[in-house]
Design a protein around this nucleic acid. Structure first.
Lengths: 195, 195
DNA sequence: ACCTGAACACCGTTCAAGT
DNA sequence: ACCTGAACACCGTTCAAGT
């Protein structure tokens, strides 16, 4: 890659990151190009689709996430590991508004630029789930797809401004659905803030 | 309303219903107008926003839904009533792809044409939830907002083609998160189809 | 190699002009 | 009253022309 191209690419990513964090994943490609002082065609040349752009935006975050799964698998009890990983995912979802919906839509589409990322998250989830199931700590009538589904659904939900305030509580509810015993990690202020 | 206007209105709704059922809630307004043999401006005059159009499309369904809640409240046990209502909602979500996402986004926006509909669904849900909680059949650390959130999240999830096949099972998982005892209504083939 | 402006086919919004 | 075509400001895609 030529030096100017490389500079363009990283500059685009910087601008895109700011714009996406501020205004969500449906920011217009034209807008991103404009703010990066780059022709729209140049942006599309580096990232032919919105998903390609987002893949580049979040790949380091996802790498960190899957690595975290490895650590949790060896250092924590199976149920704690599963809940902690779930929590990390929610934090990721929160930091890039709208990206979960893209991933949920892409995870069975091999042509999507996000497909590999989805597969990595899916695999990490499934490993932690199976481990917890083997110890009787997670319900056995669900598989990796179900877990990815629940993770996606919660990530989508708390992206909505109206549900964001209750994010921790909604997380707790979904976590309860997965584990066989009620989890105590993360925001177990049960019953203290209901109507 | 003049006779020709009335006819236009109902014809638009018929066409819109077909198009939405076939191609989802993000069908273009222009397309709907075209297929209804009506100027785009005419469509926008009857339904100034997409949400207004959808409100008209689903209002009868939602009326039936809230009435169903009334029936369930008197004729069924609290837990069965809650699960059955939840199931009705999911069926509704399935029949109009994309409408749940619109409702989830609109339910705290009084300016939205869908606001009243959301409030009605919310109220019906909350009633059934409180009743179940009073009998110790639903967990008490959640409120109507949480229930509406979970219902929205599941409705959104099963709208995605990749998750639709496991809709019944995902429903079961979420229902488990709400009830204090594992529900037996609807697709309790637990453990029979996991990986 | 890489960048760019321009043309293209779309979208929803708005409004003056028609009946 | 109600309908409509047209102009508008957007969007993402594509490509021939520039350096």
């Amino acid at each position: 890659m030529r030096a100017d191209a490389k500079k363009n690419r990283s500059h685009i990513l910087t601008v895109a990151r700011e714009l996406v964090i501020g205004h969500g994943a449906d920011a217009s490609m034209r807008d991103i190009a404009r703010r990066a002082d780059v022709g729209l065609a140049t942006l599309l040349r580096h990232f032919p689709t919105r998903e390609a752009l987002f893949e580049a935006l979040v790949c380091t975050n996802l790498d960190a996430l899957t690595q975290k799964a490895d650590e949790l698998e060896t250092s924590n009890s199976p149920d704690e590991a599963l809940v902690s990983w779930f929590h990390e995912w929610v934090e990721f979802a929160r930091s890039y508004r709208g990206v979960v919906a893209m991933m949920a839509a892409a995870h069975t589409n091999p042509d999507s630029a996000l497909y590999a990322s989805c597969a990595a998250v899916h695999a990490a989830s499934a490993r932690l789930l199976v481990r917890a199931q083997a110890e009787g700590m997670a319900r056995t009538d669900m598989n990796g797809d179900d877990l990815f589904g629940l993770m996606s659904a919660l990530g989508w939900l708390i992206d909505l401004p109206s549900f964001a305030p209750r994010a921790d509580h909604l997380f707790h509810l979904i976590a309860s659905a997965i584990l066989t015993s009620r989890p105590r990690a993360f925001s177990d202020q049960a019953g203290s803030d209901r109507a």
